[in-house]
Simulated assay, not measured.
Amino acid sequence: MDIKVGNIIKLKKQHPCGNYEWEVLRVGADFRLKCMGCGHQIMVPRKNVEKNIRGIR
């Protein structure tokens, strides 16, 4: 997958705040993602993100 810092990705499952879209802040073995709804940041393994992705903007 060609995911870069600054991309907005849409995941299959929604965040508890109700939003599906995340901004990519860091790329590597793990992704740092920021929720576009509430601003919460998480670190997720690359494998999980690539499996659950629906679209890239």
Rank of each mutant, 00 (worst) to 15 (best):
M1T: 11
M1E: 12
D2I: 11
D2Q: 12
I3H: 03
I3W: 04
K4R: 14
K4T: 10
G6K: 05
G6T: 06
N7T: 09
N7E: 14
I8D: 02
I8H: 04
I9Q: 00
L11K: 07
L11F: 04
L11G: 09
K12P: 00
K12D: 13
K13G: 08
K13R: 12
K13D: 14
H15T: 07
H15Q: 09
P16F: 05
P16G: 10
P16K: 09
P16Q: 05
C17H: 10
C17G: 11
C17V: 06
C17W: 06
Y20W: 12
Y20D: 11
Y20V: 04
E21S: 10
E21K: 12
E21A: 07
E21C: 07
E23M: 11
E23I: 08
E23G: 05
V24A: 05
L25A: 01
L25M: 12
L25F: 00
R26E: 15
R26G: 03
V27F: 02
V27S: 02
V27G: 02
G28V: 03
G28P: 03
G28T: 08
A29P: 03
A29K: 13
A29S: 14
A29L: 13
D30G: 01
F31D: 00
F31Q: 00
R32N: 04
L33S: 02
L33A: 05
L33R: 01
L33W: 00
L33H: 01
L33E: 01
K34E: 14
K34S: 10
K34V: 06
C35G: 05
C35A: 07
M36P: 00
M36Y: 01
C38G: 06
G39L: 07
H40M: 12
I42P: 00
I42F: 09
M43L: 14
M43S: 14
M43I: 11
V44L: 11
V44I: 14
V44F: 03
V44N: 08
P45L: 08
P45I: 03
P45W: 01
R46M: 13
R46V: 12
R46W: 01
K47W: 13
N48C: 12
N48L: 13
V49T: 10
E50S: 05
E50D: 10
K51H: 13
N52C: 11
I53V: 13
I53G: 03
I53N: 02
R54F: 09
G55I: 05
G55A: 15
I56W: 05
I56A: 09
I56V: 15
R57K: 10
R57A: 06
R57S: 07
